[in-house]
Write a protein that binds this DNA or RNA. Structure first.
Length: 509
RNA sequence: GCCGCGUUGGUCAAGGGGUUAAGACGCCUCCCUUUCACGGAGGAAUCACGGGUUCGAAUCCCGUACGUGGUACCA
């Protein structure tokens, strides 16, 4: 039996791809893969005033990084091409005309000034946002209020117009949401939405219905901000005669800001110090760059895992999932109804878990690129060892450098204050003596180093702890890092000696 | 204002009539580690509120409150 599940993600290319957007992609993708269906990427670029150079390519890049690759897209093509709405412009008009002919839509000639005027006139405390609806439409300039003659004349004269849906009065429109169950609205409460704009482009409302129909979309997932306009879409499916093929809807909960309430915005990320975009985005008009999860050191598999847990959970205690496990286990009826506050600390924990699960070899190229940004290009074998030594103390890929820089460069900042606080002449002679002792070590490894260190501390009647911390600081710069003998072993005998000597000089100053 | 949607610890959440209301993040205490981290053992919640229904409600119903989304020729 062939499976014909088809879902789509339909972003408008206007800027950085937000957490919530990626999660919508993810749920679409998981649903498609789980059911053996197809995941389609459609670009909704019907608003020419919001066109942003590079934003479309950026979306492809983000999806590729996340591993959420579509089966059909503007790039890939497919049976239902084109997948960019600006290239489908001519398709929409006939449906708008059909709706007018059926009496479900009408021409409206009002200028934006006239619309503003109407809103200003009707605005009151009781009605802060007057709508273009059944109550007001007859006092506006449209093919309902004007005579046929006037309408024809206006159109012939080239007067700009839009097409609006004529929302019925006293009707209830309902549908079953896969996440929320039955939802019903009063049609007269929603306004006569514009379907076709003056420039001939459709609005989202018309385009989404026409394209979902033409592209045979079976399930439509989108953010819950679309719930209030759902009745318009349902009505359109009905008026166009496609009701039997209408997709099943699912409105996903929002991702909320960590403090207070409200939708998470890119400003919250900047304010609180965490990324909200998948990858870094540079606004071409301002030149401003905002880092994404990738640049902040997240693994794509962790990023996907985080997003999946923000709004979905299976009935087990498992929290760390691979993409394949998510695909296997995902079910739309376990998606939550309520929004979730984004918790950056937990996000980092997810990343840490994924780092620990990855092999050193897999981590190598990733870590290397962050080292290269710091101007250090270690050889693979050496970096591999370092990765295995420090990986368990890294939450982010960006932590590898601060946790591991001293393996490749002698530390520029040495916390001499801590050493000086308990410094004695005995310790000084200990270090001088130890350097002479370890000069004789032929097999420079961590066991030998430790043995020689122990021997020398015993000789000087010092407790290991008294000199281990100073040694660590001499080699590393501060009170952190993996086992101190491992560090000495890795940087080599000469370098160990050099660092001790230069640190001793600093202490004496 | 109106309409829709939502509400289990600080956060993510399991649980959908009878449970000591799981687990995770974060926080605190302790152990391990003569750094840090990892790991381990503990500590902290009457499920927004008020009414029902029921022998029994976090779980079902109705209100209220709060939050949030929409109310554009933006998506």
């Amino acid at each position: 039996m062939t499976n014909d599940v088809r879902v789509r993600f339909a972003p408008s290319p206007t800027g950085g791809l937000h957490l919530g957007g990626v999660r919508t992609v993810l749920f679409n993708y998981l649903f498609a893969k789980h059911t053996g269906g197809k995941f389609i990427l459609r670009i909704e670029d019907t608003d020419r005033t919001r066109y942003v150079e590079g934003a479309e390519q950026y979306i492809y890049d983000c999806l590729a990084w996340c591993g959420l690759n579509p089966d059909e897209s503007p790039l890939l093509g497919g049976e239902y091409a084109p997948y960019r709405q600006s290239e489908r412009k001519d398709i929409y008009r006939q449906y708008a005309e059909q709706l007018i002919a059926q009496g479900n839509a009408y021409y409206a000639f009002d200028t934006s000034e006239e619309l503003e005027q109407m809103r200003a006139n009707l605005k009151s405390e009781q009605n802060p946002s007057p709508q273009y609806d059944h109550k007001t439409r007859m006092s506006m300039r449209n093919s309902l209020s004007l005579t046929n003659e006037e309408v024809e004349k206006l159109i012939e004269s080239g007067a700009p117009y839009v097409v609006r849906i004529k929302m019925p009065e006293n009707e209830r429109v309902g549908f079953t949401d896969m996440i929320r169950g039955h939802i019903e609205n009063e049609t007269e409460l929603v306004d006569d939405k514009v379907l076709l704009k003056a420039d001939g482009m459709p609005t989202y409302h018309l385009a989404v219905v026409v394209d979902d129909y033409l592209m045979k979309i079976t399930h439509a997932f989108r953010g819950e901000e679309w719930l209030p306009s759902a009745p318009v879409h349902i009505l359109l499916w009905k008026y166009l005669g496609w009701e039997a093929e209408m997709p099943q809807w699912a409105h996903l909960p929002l991702i909320l800001k960590p403090d207070g309430n409200g939708k998470l915005s890119k400003r919250d990320g900047q304010r609180l110090g965490f990324p909200v975009f998948a990858m870094s985005w540079t606004d071409p008009s301002t030149g401003e760059t905002i880092n994404g999860f990738k640049e902040e050191g997240f693994l794509p598999e962790a990023f996907v895992n985080i997003l999946a847990m923000l709004g979905w959970k299976d009935d087990s205690e498992q929290e760390i999932f691979s993409m394949q496990e998510l695909i296997d286990k995902f079910s739309i009826d376990r998606v939550h109804k309520g929004g979730a506050k984004f918790d950056y600390d937990k996000a980092k924990w997810f990343n840490q878990q994924h780092i620990q699960q990855k092999s050193n070899e897999d981590l190598l190229p990733l870590v290397k690129s962050f080292f290269e940004k710091e101007g250090v290009t270690p050889d693979d074998e050496s970096l591999l060892q370092v990765i295995s030594l420090i990986k368990e103390r890294c939450q982010l890929l960006t932590d590898f450098w601060p946790q591991g820089h001293f393996f490749f460069k002698s530390p520029s900042d040495i916390d001499t204050d801590t050493i000086k606080a308990k410094w004695t002449d005995e310790k000084k002679t200990f270090f001088n003596d130890w350097m002479e002792t370890f000069a004789n070590i032929t097999d420079w490894n961590s066991e030998q180093i430790e043995a020689s260190f122990n021997e020398t501390t015993a000789k000087h009647s010092l407790k290991k702890g008294e000199v281990m911390l100073p040694l660590r600081i001499m080699l590393v710069g501060g009170k952190y890092g993996p086992g101190v003998y491992d560090i000495a072993a890795h940087i080599g005998k000469e370098e160990t000696k050099n660092r001790i000597i230069s640190a001793l000089q600093l202490i004496e100053e």
